[in-house]
Nucleic acid binder design. Structure first.
Lengths: 107, 107
DNA sequence: ACGGTAGTTCGGAAATATGGGACTATTGAA
DNA sequence: TTCAATAGTCCCATATTTCCGAACTACCGT
């Protein structure tokens, strides 16, 4: 029985506009990305959650969507997962997009 | 029996970032907005469709989502509906967002 | 080895999207 | 003024997606 071989991260050129927009169209995921950008260091999944009452399995799904859309990169660090926004890749692929969206996040 | 009292358009200040992103996260809807912006005049629903083989009811749903998210304005003009992108409202509400997204649409 | 914590996976329920067909409304022609 | 054609909406059944509880894996500290 084998699990979680590796996190699935798309290559820079495989990040799609549709995927990025769909990922950020959810308020929880937008909140996660906002939280990740507000800190220079990596954050664990639960630390980056916008509300503490979101079920674990739901949160895990949101992080998977963010990962598979190319918005964040996740690495294992002991018992927790460290997440960062893939700013360089996103700015290379869609210049100005991330900033334009997050400028208006949370009003 | 009465129908379609009026098209439902949110006021400028009621347009939400989440709604705009969710609307544009669909490739069909993104194509519609792109088509509408490529022409200075209004376009009918079927004229703005990215592919001709999309079922009418599905297309109608996509236009409703675009309308209710505040992305487009629809007015009746005889037998057809004329659609325009609400550029002024969107630029006032979320400056730079629309351009930043559509710059990368369709690659 | 054990207990605790972080996160994933599974599976069923709830919510949402799709599209066929019937319907409305408007126009233009007979 | 009636008739046919066209643009689009509404209804509703099906298909797809999302949500979340529960069971599970993985890692760390003791």
């Amino acid at each position: 029985m084998f699990f979680m071989v590796q996190f699935l991260h798309p290559a820079r050129q495989d990040i799609t506009l549709e995927g990025v927009l769909a990922a950020l169209a959810d308020p929880v995921r937008l909140g996660i990305v906002k939280a990740l950008l507000s800190e220079p260091a990596c954050m664990s999944c639960s630390a980056a959650a916008p509300c503490p009452d979101i079920p674990k399995s739901t949160l895990s799904n949101h992080f998977r969507v963010l990962r598979e859309s190319g918005l964040i990169q996740t690495t294992k660090k002991g018992v927790e997962h460290r997440n960062v926004v893939r700013e360089a890749d996103l700015n290379a692929r869609f210049p100005g997009l991330l900033k334009a969206i997050l400028k208006h996040a949370g009003e």
